[in-house]
């Protein structure tokens, strides 16, 4: 059932920050069920959404993500009982901050996907990819990133650090 693929001018990069117990397992289920979704998403696995620091979202935007998806267990189902409640509270505040600095909030999606919801994972990723495609690339953060690199403020990899110290 190969469909003719539409070639788009712009392929957004989506980063998904997910917990290992529910959403990662849900994404695995989408795989074992051979569901299809756009290949734009890159998954970073965490023990729990409670571990997800909002800084990771900022860094993803800064390093070239056009959209970010954060997903974990449904409220009450967290493997560690309360991690997702803390995450939810944290992100509620963080969204306000993002809005304040001028990021279109529709680039950032929070959701709950359980280990049984392969279909929901597929919907989520497909929707976000399409939505961000309409919005176009996120450039503001990348400009910031360039400025930072230019001033030489970061030596982010051990190799760079090593090289720097060797001078």
């Amino acid at each position: 059932m190969h469909t003719d693929k539409v070639k788009h001018d712009f392929e957004p990069k989506i980063v998904a920050l997910v917990c290992t117990w529910c959403t990662y397992a849900g994404a695995d289920l989408a795989g074992t069920s051979r569901m299809q979704y756009p290949p734009n998403v890159r998954v970073v696995k965490f023990p729990c959404t409670g571990r997800i620091d909002p800084v990771f979202i900022l860094r993803a935007f800064q390093k070239g993500a056009d959209g970010v998806l954060v997903s974990g267990c449904h409220p009450g189902d967290c493997h560690y009982m309360a991690g997702n409640f803390h995450a939810r509270r944290r992100f509620a505040a963080f969204r306000k901050l993002l809005e304040f600095v001028g990021v279109d909030l529709s680039r950032l999606q929070f959701s709950w996907v359980s280990a049984a919801e392969g279909g929901k994972w597929v919907e989520m990723v497909t929707e976000l990819t399409e939505r961000v495609r309409q919005l176009g690339p996120l450039t503001e953060f990348r400009e910031l990133e360039l400025a930072e690199q230019w001033s030489g403020a970061t030596l982010t990899t051990p190799e760079l650090k090593e090289a720097y110290q060797a001078i």
Binding site: C48, G50, R51, P54, H79, Y80, H86
Partner: peptide, 10 residues
């Protein structure tokens, strides 16, 4: 410690 990492993000 259960290893959830909530403390670190907090």
């Amino acid at each position: 410690c259960g290893g959830c990492g909530t403390c670190q993000a907090t």
